[in-house]
């Protein structure tokens, strides 16, 4: 494990904590896309099918359990919690899941490391994670006042992806036979989706203004 990978994972963890903080303490999910959260739950459920069959490390298993548990509990909170669910604006969060799920599934059936159920599901989760942020980005554009926690949440998610790219570059040069086209290409696409958001995030930070994305 290199420093970029660890920093990436910690940033990912921090993004989840920021979102949980918003939900638990402020009891609000305003500006958060349930569609994106449901897609993430599906991403982790399909990627970590190996959790009980392939042991990599205690760190790996613990992180998997954290991401599975947090993603499903976030979905539960937004859908079912008495107070939190009231702040969810369904009319703004209109992205359709299957526009993303079906193409990712077809791609996973065509492009995978091995044609087995586990490997197809793994490839599907990689493709789906790459585009799962789209409903959230669409919702951000529609939101007039993006609160700080929501802005930080999306920023941390983007930073996590950027750090993973540095991790891959590092591993490519330090490990033999480290080539992973599926994760690299999807990861690059995923990070590029944040480019526009990053631009406005830094602009608002530089000018000390509230974050707002142009429609």
């Amino acid at each position: 494990m290199n420093i970029f990978r660890l920093a990436g994972d910690m940033t990912h963890l921090a993004s989840v904590l920021v979102l949980l903080l918003k939900i638990h303490t402020i009891k609000s999910c305003a500006g958060i896309s349930l569609k994106t959260q449901e897609l993430y739950a599906l991403v982790f459920a399909t990627r970590y099918l190996d959790i009980f069959t392939d042991f990599i490390s205690l760190y790996n298993t613990t992180m998997k359990l954290i991401f599975l548990g947090s993603s499903f509990s976030i979905v539960w909170y937004i859908r079912n919690h008495k107070i939190v669910s009231r702040s969810y604006d369904k009319s703004q969060d209109t992205f359709r899941h299957y526009f993303l799920i079906i193409p990712c599934l077809l791609l996973a059936l065509l492009v995978n490391e091995k044609f087995t159920f586990k490997e197809v599901m793994w490839a599907f989760s990689i493709y789906l994670e790459a585009v799962a942020i789209l409903p959230q980005l669409v919702l951000l554009q529609r939101t007039r006042n993006i609160d700080n926690l929501t802005g930080q949440y999306v920023f941390l998610l983007g930073a996590y992806r950027a750090l993973y790219i540095l991790n891959w570059i590092y591993r490519y040069f330090t490990e033999t036979h480290y080539v992973h086209w599926i994760t690299w290409v999807s990861g690059l696409v995923q990070t590029l989706l944040y480019a526009d958001f990053f631009y406005y995030y830094f602009e608002s930070w530089k000018n000390n203004k509230k974050l707002q994305l142009p429609a």
Partner: peptide
């Protein structure tokens, strides 16, 4: 035989 890589990343 196509070999799937070990998945050590999250």
């Amino acid at each position: 035989q196509l070999q799937a890589s070990p998945k050590d990343e999250l």
